[in-house]
C-alpha cells in the first residue's frame, strides 16, 4: 500500500488537493466517509465520491447455462435494481455528512476495481476507501489488494470501526 503520508500535500496557494472517496456499503463505509471528509476539510481539498454500480453479475453467473426464458435477464435486472438502490442510499448518506466540502458525487457502472482505478488515474492525489472494501461482488474478491497493487495515486485504507 502506498502511504498517504508520502503524498506531496499541495498548499492552498497552488491547485487544491483532490481526493477520491470510493463508496461502499460495507461495515467500514461510514468511517471511510468521515475520514475522507476530515482530510478534505483539513487540507482544503475537493472531495469527489464515487459509487460503482457492480455490472459483473453476468460474469459471476456466466457458468450457469441452464437458465432459460427470462430467468437470467430477470435476475440481472433485479440485481441492477438493488445496485441502483444501494447507490441512492450511499449517495444520500454521503451528502448528509459532506456539509460544505466541495466536490462531486459520481456514479458509474462496471467492474468495481477497474472503474475506481480508472477514475483514480484522473489526477487525484489520494484515494480513500474502507478496508475490507465490500462494494457489490467485491465481497467475494479482494478489492483492496487489487487496487493497491498498481494504484495510480496514493491510497488511504480506513478499517471498519472495531465492534
Amino acid at each position: 500500500m502506498k502511504s498517504p503520508m508520502k503524498s506531496p500535500m499541495k498548499s492552498s496557494a497552488t491547485t487544491p488537493m483532490k481526493l477520491l472517496l470510493a463508496l461502499d456499503d460495507g461495515p467500514g463505509a461510514r468511517r471511510a466517509v468521515d475520514e475522507a471528509i476530515r482530510i478534505a476539510r483539513e487540507k482544503g481539498a475537493t472531495l469527489d465520491a464515487l459509487f460503482v454500480i457492480d455490472a459483473t453479475w453476468d460474469v459471476f453467473t456466466g457458468h450457469d447455462w441452464l437458465s432459460g426464458c427470462n430467468s437470467r435477464i430477470g435476475f440481472l435486472e433485479y440485481m441492477q435494481g438493488l445496485e441502483e438502490k444501494a447507490a441512492a442510499e450511499s449517495a444520500r448518506a454521503f451528502l448528509e455528512r459532506r456539509g460544505d466540502v466541495p466536490g462531486e458525487l459520481l456514479t458509474a457502472p462496471g467492474d468495481v476495481v477497474d472503474v475506481i482505478r480508472e477514475h483514480a488515474a484522473r489526477g487525484y492525489d489520494l484515494l480513500v476507501l474502507s478496508s475490507p472494501f465490500t462494494r457489490g461482488l467485491e465481497v467475494m474478491r479482494d478489492a483492496v489488494t487489487r487496487l493497491t497493487r498498481d494504484a495510480p495515486c496514493d491510497v488511504l485504507l480506513v478499517r471498519a470501526a472495531p465492534e
Binding site: T61, H63, D64, L66, S67, S71, R72, G74, F75, E77, Y78, M79, L82, E83, A86, G136, L137, V139
Partner: peptide
C-alpha cells in the same frame, strides 16, 4: 445456480 437465479427476485434475496 439456475434455481437460485430464478428464485432470487421473487424472494427479495440480498446480493
Amino acid at each position: 445456480v439456475s434455481a437460485a437465479v430464478a428464485t432470487a427476485p421473487g424472494v427479495r434475496a440480498k446480493p
